[in-house]
């Protein structure tokens, strides 16, 4: 199925969890945040969150500098 990852179109498996998607991208959950269709998805729910066709994901690294 088709999803959008940081603005880029991607094909992923049906039923893929957000946690698995993050892992497949080589990203570490700690220090990473993710929004789906412009709403932040709490990290504790990433494993249960199933990606669906045409979802827009914004995945970004957190920063802590001042």
């Amino acid at each position: 199925m088709k999803i959008f990852f940081n603005g880029e179109e991607l094909e992923v498996d049906n039923g893929l969890s957000l946690a698995q998607f993050i892992k497949d991208r080589g990203l570490t959950p700690d220090g990473t945040a993710c929004a789906v269709d412009e709403n932040i998805i709490p990290k504790a729910t990433w494993s249960d969150f199933k990606l669906e066709e045409n979802m827009h994901l914004d995945v970004f690294t957190l920063v802590a500098g001042g």
Binding site: G31, A33, P42, K43, A44, L62, A64
Partner: peptide, 10 residues
């Protein structure tokens, strides 16, 4: 904390 989760030492 809901937003950031556990924040490592960046």
């Amino acid at each position: 904390r809901c937003f950031a989760g556990l924040l490592p030492d960046l």
